[in-house]
Simulated scan of single mutants.
Amino acid sequence: MDTIELQRVARIENDNWWYRERRAILSRELLRYSVPGDAVDIGAGAGGNSKELAAHGWQATAIDLNPVAVALARAHGVEAYEGDARYLPLPSERYDMALAMDVLEHIEDDARAAAEITRVLRPGGTVLLSVPCDMALWSAHDVSLGRVRRYTRRALVDLLDGAGLLLDRVWSRGVLLRPPLRLLRHRSAHYEDLAPLHPFTNEALRLAAALERRLPIATWPGTCLFARAHRPG
């Protein structure tokens, strides 16, 4: 993510429905672990997810390629370092948890990045990640964010398998919002999710996301995919 987009995210992530929803998903996943451990947040941006990890008792380290992101994360009290997801400046078999939230879609050699995740995880360690799904949704929005792909469910599963990770679960989000978002993004060459939303719109989207959690539609096509996998051991 370039500096301009990063600064936009830093301004909106505390209130924006999507960043709040992503942290809520992370929070629910972390409740699976009774004993927190060491975690690395890869492509951490300003450190919002790292702070969520810390709030659940995890010892979090943030890694981002952008020095501005590292500075912002440190300003928020997060231990953060510059690093490329393909060549993580971290020891092998060190972490109990790795996050890669909306990261892999920005990397041409995503197989290398996935292999690095495996390398830094301890045997039995978990990775939680999210990616945008379905090239049918490709639009100027993806280009503006510097993405190089969107994933099918099969492609994501194959990527994790190729990295030596065992898949625990893969699920869709944004199922209810897929039709309107597809329409908006394809109708405009300048549609931008990172612009501040009107409070009414933001709340409506938040409620739609909350409703989706209660519906049995996690296998339906959505706008993004989440996956949880672990390193064998």
Rank of each mutant, 00 (worst) to 15 (best):
R8F: 03
V9R: 02
D15I: 13
Y19C: 09
R20D: 10
R22F: 08
A24P: 08
I25E: 10
L30D: 07
R32A: 00
R32Q: 03
R32L: 03
G37H: 14
D38T: 11
I42V: 10
I42T: 03
A44E: 10
A46R: 00
A46P: 06
A46S: 02
G47H: 14
L53Q: 12
H56N: 15
G57C: 13
W58L: 13
Q59Y: 12
A62P: 13
V68M: 04
V68Y: 05
V70H: 10
A73M: 15
H76K: 15
H76T: 09
D84M: 13
A85D: 11
S92P: 12
S92N: 14
R94V: 09
D96S: 14
D96N: 14
L99E: 08
M101W: 13
D102K: 04
V103Q: 02
L104Y: 06
E108I: 08
D109M: 00
R112E: 11
A113F: 02
A114F: 04
A115T: 06
E116F: 01
I117G: 00
R119M: 07
V120Y: 01
V120K: 05
R122A: 09
P123C: 03
G124A: 08
G124T: 02
G125L: 06
T126R: 09
S130Y: 08
S130G: 08
P132G: 01
P132I: 07
P132M: 03
L137I: 11
L137C: 12
L137M: 10
W138D: 00
D142Y: 02
S144I: 00
L145S: 03
G146V: 04
R149Q: 10
R153A: 09
A155C: 06
A155Y: 08
V157G: 09
V157S: 12
L159S: 05
L160D: 14
D161W: 07
L165K: 11
L165R: 12
L165M: 15
L165Y: 10
D168H: 15
R169H: 07
V175H: 02
L176Q: 06
L177M: 13
L183H: 07
L183G: 00
L183W: 09
L184R: 08
L184D: 01
L184K: 05
L184P: 00
R185Y: 00
R185T: 04
S188G: 07
H190V: 05
D193R: 02
N202A: 02
A210Y: 01
E212H: 11
R214P: 05
L215R: 14
L215F: 11
L215W: 02
P216C: 06
I217C: 06
A218S: 08
G222Q: 13
L225C: 12
F226P: 04
F226W: 13
G233V: 10
